[in-house]
Design a binder for these strands. Structure first.
Length: 275
DNA sequence: ATGGCTGACGCTGTCAGA
């Protein structure tokens, strides 16, 4: 089973790329961020015509997340407030459409678009910190159910220096600061593993290249799009990769998709022994 | 790179992203 995450920077601008990529790569579950459209304008029928179910949480111009799945999507939860109700800034944190989760094939799929934060001394960074703390509460709540979790999306954080092209230039700046790295780590709580790093420990593995400064041509990127798995699915993961080719296309998103291949449901393996 | 691309909105400029 192939599960993917992709910040598409507007689904309506990227629809041809997304559709083609989905078909060519036989993706089973695709989580999108920055769809940048109200739900009424989301091109649902393009995906349903291909046999996918679609769950969306969008807003005008900014943010927006979506789950596109070949398998039935159950128990959809939009925003933080449908999962947790004991966090103080819940109403402010729910205004921006940045999180959607659902049960698919007995996995809790959690699709997030973490705020960028703008700069360390801005109000937006305060918002980012609050958002990450609320994510921690949210994940604790979902973890109580003991279902396998796949948390994926655009985290707007490079977890380590090897996830930045020139780390020395970005010490304690946005997306690289120790504070946001710590908050992300706290949210993951030791339960969720960055599956890409299980298979690929090396440097120069980026998922985002700035549109400016010829960042793509100079391969100056960051790895800020991640897939985190709980141990029960992690042990079924075969591989994880970043599809850089999508960043090289005409009119690309500034992010490339990240894909994980999982042997799921795990009973398939047992069946191979029997038959 | 002191915000130098891109997209949305809606109007020929402004905001936001990362």
């Amino acid at each position: 089973m192939l599960v993917a995450t992709w910040n598409v920077n507007s689904i309506r601008s990227r629809i041809d790329h997304v559709k083609e990529w989905l078909i060519t790569n036989k993706i089973d579950i695709l989580c999108l961020q920055e769809t940048k459209t109200e739900d009424k304008f989301f091109p649902i029928e393009i995906f349903s015509d291909l046999g996918y179910e679609v769950s969306i949480s969008g807003q005008k111009s900014y943010n927006g997340v979506a789950i596109i799945s070949r398998f039935p999507i159950n128990d959809i939860k939009i925003g933080f407030n449908e999962v947790t109700n004991d966090y103080q800034d819940l109403s402010i944190l729910s205004e921006q459409k940045r999180i959607i989760s659902a049960d698919i094939n007995d996995i809790r799929i959690i699709n997030v678009y973490v705020p960028n934060g703008s700069s360390i001394n801005s109000d937006k960074f305060i918002y980012k910190k609050k958002w990450l703390k609320c994510l921690q509460v949210y994940l604790r709540e979902i973890n109580k159910n003991n279902t396998p979790i796949c948390l994926l999306g655009d985290f707007n954080i490079a977890p380590e220096d090897r996830d930045i092209h020139t780390p020395s230039r970005y010490e304690e700046s946005i997306m690289a600061s120790s504070k946001e790295r710590e908050l992300l780590k706290d949210a993951l709580g030791g339960e969720l593993e960055d599956v890409f790093r299980i298979f690929e420990p090396g440097e120069k593995n980026w998922s985002w290249w700035d549109y400016r400064h010829s960042a793509w041509e100079r391969d100056k990127g960051w790895r800020i799009d991640h897939i985190y798995l709980t141990e029960d699915i992690l042990s079924c993961a075969n591989s994880c990769w970043i599809d850089k080719e999508q960043r090289s296309r005409e009119k690309p998103s500034d992010h490339a998709p990240v894909v994980v291949d999982i042997n799921w449901p795990p009973s398939d393996i047992e069946n191979e022994f029997f038959f």
